[in-house]
Amino acid sequence: MSQSSYIPVFDHSGRSNVSRMPTWIRQQLGGEAAYGKTAGAVKRQALHTVCEEARCPNRAECWSRGTATFMLLGDTCTRACGFCNVKTGRPDGLDTDEPRRIAAAVAGMGLDYVVLTSVNRDDRADGGAAIFAETLRLLRQHKSDIGLEILTPDFQQDQHLAIEMICKAVNGGQLVWGHNVETVPELYKEVRKGSKYDRSLDLLALAAVQPGVEAKSALMLGLGESRDQVLAVLRDLRDIGVTRVSLGQYLRPSRYHLPVKEYLSPDSFSELEREARAMGFAWVKAGPMVRSSYHAEEGHPGSSQSKKGFNHAK
Rank of each mutant, 00 (worst) to 15 (best):
T38K: 10
V42S: 10
V119I: 15
C51T: 13
R124I: 05
A41C: 10
R100W: 10
G93I: 00
R20S: 06
T67D: 14
C77N: 10
Q27W: 01
V106L: 04
V119F: 14
R65F: 14
Y35H: 07
R79I: 10
M109E: 05
G36E: 06
G40T: 14
R55H: 15
S118D: 10
R26K: 07
F132A: 05
Q27N: 00
G110F: 00
R65E: 15
L111A: 00
T78E: 07
R100L: 11
L111Q: 03
G89K: 12
P57E: 13
Y113M: 03
A41K: 11
G93N: 08
F83G: 02
T78V: 10
D95L: 00
D92F: 01
E52Q: 08
G108Y: 05
M21Y: 13
A104E: 14
R90P: 00
G40W: 12
G31P: 01
C51Y: 10
K87S: 09
D126N: 03
G89R: 13
M21D: 10
V50Y: 07
E134T: 06
A39V: 08
F132H: 01
M71K: 09
D92Q: 11
G30Q: 07
G128E: 06
A60F: 08
Y113C: 03
M109F: 05
R79P: 01
N85S: 14
R121D: 09
D122L: 09
D123L: 02
I131G: 04
D122I: 12
C51D: 09
A129R: 00
R20W: 00
M71R: 11
F132N: 04
Q27T: 13
M109R: 02
A129M: 04
A46S: 12
R100Y: 11
A60G: 05
P91E: 06
S118L: 08
A68L: 15
D112M: 00
L29R: 11
C56V: 13
M21C: 07
R26T: 03
S118I: 08
E53H: 10
N85Y: 12
C77K: 02
T69N: 09
G40A: 12
I102Q: 10
S64W: 11
